[in-house]
Design a protein around this nucleic acid. Structure first.
Lengths: 198, 198
DNA sequence: ACTCGGTTACTCGAACTCGACTATCCACGG
DNA sequence: CCGTGGATAGTCGAGTTCGAGTAACCGAGT
């Protein structure tokens, strides 16, 4: 099992794109944007080049050629190796099978909600709800348009994110209503440390 | 607005604990574990000390004293400053109001599901469902026990995570059923790049 | 002709993260 | 009384991430 740094969402994206055919880093970057993979995988600036270097050092990908068009910087083309394919496969299985410890920042916000008063909290949650509702509606339209062209299996991750959005909307609705109705008793900050379970 | 590195879930946790009263780093670390804040906020080894150093450099917290008990390492006690309190407040509001771009690794897995065949994928998703179901049941019992003691408002983030779990379970049920029934047409890998939207 | 913005294609250093390590004290069994 | 394991408290350096910078090319205007 290769080290942690070779088993990240970004390295998986790289391996997958190289699985289709050899490419150079910039092409990968462009594809990640074009196919909206960056909505699912965090990719910022130079970290892609770093990831590719690591993969090459570990032998999961190899240099195929080094073209140069004019006096522009060199383009190194990489291809996936057998080990790379194996790792990619194992990674996909892992990601699907094992629920990971994600740390959504909203949960952090909720853990500290008692530093605010009830009315303010309700207002903020309402704002959040509207923002999510907007994203939801946009995604719904997009998914509807897709069903006319794309097979469902290629947009599963969008469908999943949408399902979570629906659930969060419903949850926010309930909580906001409860706060407004006084059905969610508030506490004085001094009494209650902003914590989780006991 | 302070830089990104001072506006992370971990720094917020530190600021919140110091809001209660001055503490030294190890005490903060212990509290984070004790109150299960580490279920919501990523905290590994020395990163806490790094975060505290940064907060101190930026003046959001200050050294109050440096006790030494016996020949043990020194314990530096920190307290929150007015700026620190302001930043913590703004952060909580931000986290509650603005839906963030989280990157759940499961979505990455889904984006690459076509590198597997349908039967394998269904098996993996079933495994995932059972794991989540287990967590769900454990959490449900814990929440039920809490209602006898803790006010609901202090376990909101647990309730939220649970709501998302329920939604994911339902979604997984549907997808697994559809795959089993052949109602989710699969594609040949060659035809379909593992991508998101068009 | 000239420059202006956009695209191509990386490079680099500063900042950040993380796990492994250090070192002391204390309680307790043998 | 001696060692052993856990709690106390933090250090360190190697490895990673990130944003800003560099630098050439290209087409469309003016």
């Amino acid at each position: 099992m290769p080290p942690r740094a070779l088993r990240t969402p970004l390295t998986l994206a790289v391996l997958s794109l190289l699985r289709e055919r050899p490419r150079h880093p910039y092409e990968i970057q462009a594809l990640v944007r074009e196919r909206h993979i960056d909505q699912v995988v965090k990719m910022r600036g130079g970290s892609l080049y770093d990831a590719i270097d690591r993969l090459a050092d570990a032998g999961l990908i190899t240099t195929v050629s080094s073209e140069r068009a004019g006096a522009r910087p060199e383009r190194t083309v990489y291809a996936i190796t057998a080990e790379g394919t194996a790792v990619a496969d194992a990674l996909v299985r892992d990601y699907l099978r094992t629920p990971a410890q994600d740390f959504p920042v909203f949960a952090t916000g909720l853990a500290h909600i008692l530093t605010l008063d009830a009315a303010t909290a309700a207002d903020l949650l309402r704002e959040r709800r509207e923002a999510i509702r907007a994203t939801h509606d946009r995604t719904a339209r997009q998914l509807a348009a897709d069903t006319a062209g794309l097979p469902r299996v290629v947009t599963l991750e969008v469908e999943y994110a949408q399902a979570l959005r629906v659930a969060e909307l419903a949850w926010l609705d309930r909580v906001v209503r409860d706060i407004d109705a006084g059905a969610l008793p508030w506490l004085d900050v001094a009494d209650a440390p902003p914590s989780g379970a006991p």
